[in-house]
Amino acid sequence: MNYHWNWAIFWEPSPEGWGSYADMLMSGLYWTLATSIAAWIMALVLGVIVGVLRTMPYRIPAAFAYAYVELFRNIPLLVQMFLWFFVMPELVPEDFGRWLKQMPNAPFYTAVISLGFFTSARVAEQVRAGVDALPRGQRMAGTALGLTLTQVYRYVLMPMVFRIILPPLTSEFLNCIKNSSVALTIGLMELTARARSMQEFSFQVFEAFTAATLLYVAINLVVTFGMRWLEKSVAVPGYIGSSRT
């Protein structure tokens, strides 16, 4: 292989006018974290609401939740980002559209919104699976005790549902971090975009992508260990997963 390795490239000044290539990757890391954490919070809130709606004994909210999930999980994330970024501002009144387009950091907000909606559909499915996994008797017992539907969810169902779905939620959080790289297509300078531009400026492809890979692995390991700790600390003795402590 005719390739000139240059690991010292990270300390060379970047062509952006400030800092080194390492600083450039770090700013990418910052945007990756900002995007994925903001999108994850949005996904959790919306996902739980929609997931719960789907399991409610009412027809219309359940149908709405069903439509929501199918809409956001069946359209590829890349297409969703394009629709939010390029098409949506054309559909709203012109002045509002122009304001949207000229907004500073527009790619960031767009990325958070589309990644948030996309991930929320997947979280909603997991919440629904969690509720369905509980024996029907729990819901009935709650109602028999005279609890309202809200109380049944709040005090009987959801505490167990969250414990059951923690492992798949971990995967979903990791996916959310990795999916944030799709936002490079709408101009968000996150980690992958920074690695790409670093390789185009310097032509040191392998160094750039090795660094990006290691950074992604590092963030994901932190998340994995954090979530595992959370799983253990909230585990109910004698219930699923807790026997392996």
Partner: peptide, 26 residues
């Protein structure tokens, strides 16, 4: 993104203090 052009416009923006917001397209 990743072109010599964006690199240059970034430099000019900083040097001449033009205060432009520079987006990077794929």
């Amino acid at each position: 993104s990743g072109t010599a052009n964006i690199k240059q416009i970034n430099q000019i923006n900083a040097e001449r203090n033009l205060g432009m917001t520079i987006l990077a397209a794929k």
